[in-house]
Design a protein around this nucleic acid. Structure first.
Ligand SMILES: [Mn+2]
Ligand SMILES: [Mn+2]
Ligand SMILES: [Mn+2]
Ligand SMILES: [Mn+2]
Lengths: 219, 219
DNA sequence: AATAAAATTTAGGCAAATCTAAAAATAAAT
DNA sequence: ATTTATTTTTAGATTTGCCTAAATTTTATT
C-alpha cells in the first residue's frame, strides 16, 4: 500500500502519542499536527477505511499491527535521514528535524536500504532515539530521566524528551549532548533544580523542567 | 515563493521542452507529464497567475525569467541527488531518475548547499548533464551526437539523449557510459548504423537511433 | 440527577489537482 | 473558401485535505 504525505504524518503522530498514552484523542492529534479537530476526525475515518487503526467515535484511536508497521517504517526513514544530515552533512542536531520531516516521505525502499548501509547501519539517531530495522524492530533502552537520577551516581546522556529547538539549543549552550557523562552533586529543594558536574567543569544548574527532558543511563 | 510538487514538476517539464522547442504546447506537456490536456490548461492558468510564464491560450507557453530560475533550482536539486545516489549509494545510472524525481522536491536550500559541498561540487550528473550552480548558471558543453561524428576521429561520450531505462540499459550492455572513449570505424549506408571501436575491444554495431542518442566530444 | 463545560463529530464549503465529455478555436486539406 | 481534422479550452465531477460553525456526545460540577 502507498500513503500520502498527510496520511504518513498522521500515522507517525498517532504512533508517538500512543507511546505515552496508549489511547490517543482527537484533540491531542490536532495539537500535535497543528490542525483542527474536525480535520482529524476526517482523516481518522479515512485511515480506518484503510484498516490501519481502531477508531471508536468519541473514544479515541489506536494503531493496529499494520498501522504500527507503517509508522515504524516512516520513523526508520526519519531517523536514518537525521543521522545522515548530522554525520555526513555536518548539520547540528537542532537543525535536522524539519528537513527529515520531508525526506521521510521519499518512497523508495531500496534507497533506505542503501542509505542504511552507507551510514554503517547506525542504531541511534542524533537525538539518541533508536532506529528501527527493516522489519520494524527497535531496541528499548532503559533510560531514566536525569530528574530521577540519584546523587553522586555517574551517568551518560542517552536521549532527550523532545526535538524542539528551544530545548536542543539550551543543551548546546550547557554543553550537553548524547554521550555526555555527568553526575548530580546537589538538589535544591526550593525549585527542584539540580547542580550537576560535567567532566572537569565547574558545577552548573539545571531547572527541574530541563532535568526531566534529559534521559540518562547509569554507568 | 513556495511551490507544490505538481507545480514544480510542470515548471521543470516546460523548461525541458522549451530547450528543444522554445514554444511549448499543451499536448506536448500532457504527454511529458502523463496527464490530460485539460489538466495542463488548468495548471497553466495557475502558473500564469503566479507570474512564472507567458501563456497565450491556444498558442502555447514559455517560462519567463522567474520561471526559468525556479526550473533551474529544481534541476540543480535533481542532478545533485542523482550524483549522490550513484557516487555515494552506488546505484546504477539507470536506477536514479525516479528517486531523484521525489528528492528534488525537498525544500531546504541549506540542505542542497551542504549536499553540494559534501559531493565535492560536482559539475555533471551521472548522465553527463551539467549541474546548475546556486544562481542558476550552468555550463553549455558543445557536444555533437555520435551519429554526426566523422569516421576515425577519437571522441569521448559526454551525454545521453534521454534517461529512459531502455536506453540506459542498452548502453550498459554495450559497455558505454559517460567518459567512454570511442571512434567510428565504418558506416553502413543501408540502415545508417555505425561500427564503433572501444578501447581494446572488437568492433560493435550501434543502430542509427542509438547513435543519435549518444553525445560525444572530440578529443 | 440536572446542568454546565469540554471534547468530538457533522454539515457545508473551499482550493488543488485531476478526470471525461462537449464546445470552441486553430490548422490542414480539399 | 469550405470542409475536415487536430488541438485546446470549458464545463461539470471527483478526491484529498483542510476550514468554520453548529450539533451532538461525553465528562465534570453543582
Ligand atoms: Mn513528515
Ligand atoms: Mn530524532
Ligand atoms: Mn519530480
Ligand atoms: Mn540526470
Amino acid at each position: 500500500m502507498n500513503f500520502s504525505i498527510a496520511e504518513e504524518n498522521y500515522i507517525k503522530a498517532i504512533w508517538h502519542l500512543q507511546q505515552a498514552d496508549n489511547n490517543v484523542t482527537t484533540n491531542e492529534l490536532a495539537a500535535e499536527l497543528q490542525t483542527k479537530p474536525a480535520s482529524v476526525t476526517d482523516m481518522l475515518k479515512r485511515l480506518k477505511e484503510k484498516k490501519l487503526l481502531n477508531y471508536q467515535p468519541y473514544y479515541g484511536v489506536k494503531l493496529n499491527a499494520d498501522g504500527k508497521k507503517v509508522a515504524l517504517s516512516i520513523i526508520r526513514k526519519h531517523r536514518l535521514w537525521e543521522f545522515f544530515l548530522v554525520e555526513k552533512l555536518k548539520f547540528n542536531w537542532d537543525e535536522v528535524h524539519a528537513i527529515a520531516e520531508e525526506l521521510e516521505h521519499v518512497s523508495s525502499n531500496e534507497l533506505i536500504k542503501r542509505l542504511d548501509d552507507f551510514l554503517g547501519n547506525p542504531r541511534f539517531d542524533p537525538h539518541g532515539d533508536p532506529i528501527p530495522d527493516g522489519s520494524g524492530k527497535m531496541e528499548t533502552l532503559n533510560q531514566i530521566s536525569l530528574h530521577e537520577l540519584k546523587e553522586n551516581i555517574s551517568a551518560t546522556v542517552t536521549g532527550v524528551g523532545d526535538q524542539t529547538s528551544s530545548l536542543l539549543e539550551l543543551l548546546n549552550k550547557k554543553n550537553i549532548s548524547i554521550g555526555t557523562k555527568l553526575e548530580i552533586k546537589q538538589r535544591n529543594s526550593f525549585d527542584a533544580s539540580v547542580e550537576i558536574k560535567l567532566r572537569n567543569q565547574p558545577l552548573i544548574t539545571l531547572s527541574e523542567q530541563l532535568a526531566k527532558k534529559i534521559f540518562v543511563k547509569t554507568v
